[in-house]
Design a protein around this nucleic acid. Structure first.
Lengths: 341, 341
DNA sequence: TTGTAGGCGTTATCAT
DNA sequence: ATGATAACGCCTACAA
């Protein structure tokens, strides 16, 4: 049996409330007893029972993170741990703990969200799973439960933090355009994912700003954003696609694409320039080193936590959104001026 | 205010205990009232307050995972999310939630462990941080708190799950030896890390079993296991190191090493065969594709959870250890017979 | 089969 | 400055 507040009280010959006050650092307590109690707490290695405390305070100091399960390939992405670390570091600083919930399916997500919100375990949650029409979102909105989504949502009542996906698409496209490229393939558009929609829109805007026509034939769809870039690119080339540059929605896609390009007897970047997104650690070690866009996943996490905090503090829901800037990292895979343009 | 057991009781015109019994599926209750209560619970969308329940049950159904923070590079390793997923999936199945605690320093770890164990929040913990002499371990052992370490420990009182690191080293070395290699560099030995010690021992044993002498000159030390393989290899080559094969302790190390090798004007695998460990997703896309060893991180996680469960169930501490087998994946970076051996 | 009472460990209110 | 008491929401003897 662990040592409780009453054990301390007995030993110190004071009441439990006095001990409680000492713990709370209540000023209305004599220094003498305070020190005595503190000493005994030390001796007996007392630690307050958070459960009991939570029960009376109605505050657990725990936030939940709901993330897609193993099934989703994306879970293996280096992006995730960094994001987690961002959330965790901020949470730590503010004295919060993190409850991690992996969900495999949409149903599981719904159930998990319900459990987390209604069980009183968690004071707020961060959702990493936002598909577009997400019933958990509506549920959370309806219950006025504090939550933040990572990844943009079109529901006006949700608070979210997202990468600057539009700008990511824009920057990469412009980078290619400035080097004289006109035929830029967009690899990995996934109609269900807002991320890729935003990136594609940025890409389109860049074309437009440079008086270039958008060619839908150059958009290569994939079911998931982490789909096999090798197969996608191979099929695209076999279909007669002959772009001079490829903008891949993810570094992994880009790596796969490059493999396919090499197999087709073409060289990167001379025949075909390639860029990815996310700037995974290996982008730099790849042969050739891969141009990419560093999204600051860590910041995404810290920002998400901060936003969640403000939502938790205000009874009035304030609808916030934050966009984390990203940085273009140009490497050899795209460093090639086309016909001296 | 959330709906409680008494709200249900009132509405159903029964006592709170009856409702409690319905929740617990107690057989000694009439089907009539049971159904009535269940219906009302449904209507009012009742969910039990886990905090209150935990307080009386002394069981939170939460386990803690303590992992190294952002500072440690290893956190970005694809290995981590997979491991997490393994733990989480098993935990989910058994109705456990996961409390994730990132710690940046050893002190933080110690404090976190203390908090998690003594606050009653957590029924068991999984440690991912085990440095060799870890004071948290002794603390946990002394308190008889259920815990499992991922990564071997030499403390006889700790339960652990680990990769078969000895065998990983052995297999890779033997793979090289069978192809005629005699000068096999061991890249990334880190004296502080048991992992690399075990791998090195496996490597040595393979040499011995094949009547080859061990040459300490071929062991390249690095401070951390994820240290820059590029710099290590570059320095090694500059120092006059001329192995015919390189066994790197991690795929990332291997990628860096290959970059250095290429820059030195040497070819992989013809001049120098290379292999890594962990089989990261990109190993296959690398140029050349990297020979590696697939450690089953997911299994590591599930196994760790299972072990934790058995430890939690038995008051008597049983000291268990489990070793998860790994699979050699041979790819082009090492596929080269030396002088027709 | 159901209800009553006490308690889990803590905090907060009200006395003293 | 300190103590007694009730309450947080739930579970579990014991009683009925």
């Amino acid at each position: 049996m662990r040592v409780t507040i009453t054990d301390i009280a007995k030993k110190a010959k004071v009441s439990a409330s006095t001990v409680s006050r000492v713990i709370a650092d209540n000023p209305r307590i004599s220094t003498a007893t305070k020190e005595k109690v503190l000493k005994i707490m030390e001796e007996m290695n007392y630690h307050p029972n958070m459960i009991a405390r939570s029960l009376v305070n109605r505050s657990t100091r725990i936030i939940g993170i709901v993330m897609p399960g193993v099934a989703e390939q994306s879970f293996k992405h280096p992006f995730f741990p960094e994001l987690l670390a961002g959330i965790a570091s901020m949470a730590n600083k503010k004295g919060y703990k993190i409850l991690l919930a992996n969900v495999a399916t949409v149903d599981e997500e719904k159930q998990m969200v319900e459990e987390l919100t209604l069980s009183g375990m968690t004071e707020g949650i961060i959702l990493l799973t936002s598909r577009d029409q997400d019933s958990s979102l509506e549920q959370l909105v309806a219950e006025h439960f504090p939550f933040v989504v990572i990844g943009r949502s079109e529901n006006p009542y949700v608070n979210w933090v997202d990468n600057d996906n539009f700008n990511i698409g824009y920057q990469l496209a412009e980078h290619f355009i400035k080097q004289g490229h006109r035929e830029i393939a967009f690899l990995g558009y996934s109609p269900g994912a807002l991320v890729t929609r935003d990136r594609l829109n940025g890409y389109k805007k860049a074309l437009q700003d440079h008086q270039l026509a958008f060619d839908p034939e150059l958009v290569v769809e994939s079911k998931f954003i982490t789909d096999n870039g090798y197969d996608l690119m191979k099929a695209f080339l076999a279909d007669g696609g002959r772009p001079t540059a490829v903008l891949a929605c993810d570094d992994y896609l880009a790596f796969g694409a490059i493999k396919a390009i090499h197999e087709a007897g073409l060289a990167v970047p001379t025949d075909l320039a390639v860029a990815g997104i996310n700037n995974v650690p290996l982008a730099d070690y790849h042969n050739p080193p891969l141009t990419s866009v560093a999204i600051n996943a860590f910041s995404l996490g810290t920002k998400a936590f901060e936003m969640l905090r403000t939502v938790m503090k205000n009874d009035i829901q304030s609808y916030n959104r934050a966009i984390i800037p990203a940085d273009l990292v140009i490497r050899a895979s795209s460093r090639h001026e086309l016909h001296g343009a």
